[in-house]
Design a protein around this nucleic acid. Structure first.
Length: 274
DNA sequence: CACGAGACCTGTTCGC
DNA sequence: TGCGAACAGGTCTCGT
């Protein structure tokens, strides 16, 4: 489910609290309840439970699609994958069906990791770089220049869409925002990265930033039962709109499968060619 | 190196 | 109506 804007939104909400829910910073872990062992990527479950007890939450942040929770001694990292979500609840409440990990706090509140498809993972480590080291640059980091982005595009000869979704190339884009950015930039998802000229490259970077910022502005994209809160789904240009009119030229949006992912684009606006 | 397919999972929607 | 196929915001690993 969550791509960069959704994780950013969750991080913000959990940091600030709101709607009768307390901010997470300051909460002290009393106990971890593990309902699906494979959710814990590191360390093993016994050590995870042992180690997290008594640690206080200092601060939440995001890197790519990872949610990072800084604890007093260690760092807790979540990757929500396709269906993960984080909820702050009262401890009296019964566990919902798909809770995989629950952190109970001394305050009577708890943080629940709910993940229908069980793809999500959690790491507890003294050195978060162990988990994050391979990630590419943050797309919204102004330190990533047009020139650098162009260089990175030309250091591969790969189809644009799978390249943009490769987290070692750029950290945070997923299936929705990649389709949106490519349409906004008028670039075909199958275009080869080393055939992109400088103007197209800077347009692409600007488009990526524009759709991600708009997504954050709208608190993310909510589709189906997964991820509630955001309403960017109402502003999507091509994602999930197969057969509907392109918002720019009116041509029906096409769908192809690329790297086993649905890919939506306008066959008129998005042309392969340098 | 680039790319496709299969795994990992559960739930909903589609098509006949 | 029923039932299997297709599909879903992700990523890893293997084979070509």
């Amino acid at each position: 489910m969550p791509e960069l804007p959704e994780v950013e939104t969750i991080s913000h909400i959990l940091n600030q609290g709101g709607e009768g829910i307390p901010p997470l910073p300051g909460q002290v872990v009393d106990q971890a309840v593990v309902l699906w062992e494979r959710t814990i990527a590191m360390p093993d479950v016994a050590r995870f439970k042992e180690s997290i007890r008594g640690q206080k939450i200092e601060h939440l942040s995001r890197r790519g699609k990872f949610l990072i929770i800084q604890l007093t001694q260690e760092t807790l990292l979540f990757h929500l994958r396709m269906s993960g979500d984080l909820l702050v609840e009262r401890q009296e409440q019964a566990f919902a069906p798909h809770h995989r990990l629950v952190l109970e706090f001394t305050s009577g509140w708890r943080l629940a990791f709910n993940d229908t498809r069980k793809f999500g993972r959690v790491w507890l480590t003294a050195d978060p770089q162990e988990v994050l080291a391979g990630l590419g640059p943050e797309p919204l980091d102004r330190g990533l220049s047009s020139a650098e982005f162009f260089r990175r595009l030309h250091s591969h000869s790969r189809q644009l869409k799978p390249l943009l979704m490769d987290q070692t190339f750029l950290a945070g884009l997923g299936n929705i925002y990649t389709d949106e950015a490519l349409h906004l930039a008028r670039l075909h998802p199958l275009s080869l990265s080393d055939k992109i000229n400088e103007e197209q490259s800077s347009r692409l970077l600007a488009s990526i930033r524009q759709v991600l910022e708009a997504g954050i502005q709208r608190n993310g994209t909510s589709i189906d039962w997964v991820y509630r809160g955001g309403d960017y789904q109402n502003y999507l240009r091509v994602y999930g709109r197969t057969g509907e009119a392109c918002p720019v030229c009116g041509t029906p949006i096409e769908r192809i499968v690329l790297g086993q992912r649905s890919t939506h684009f306008c066959p008129v606006c998005q042309v392969i060619r340098a």
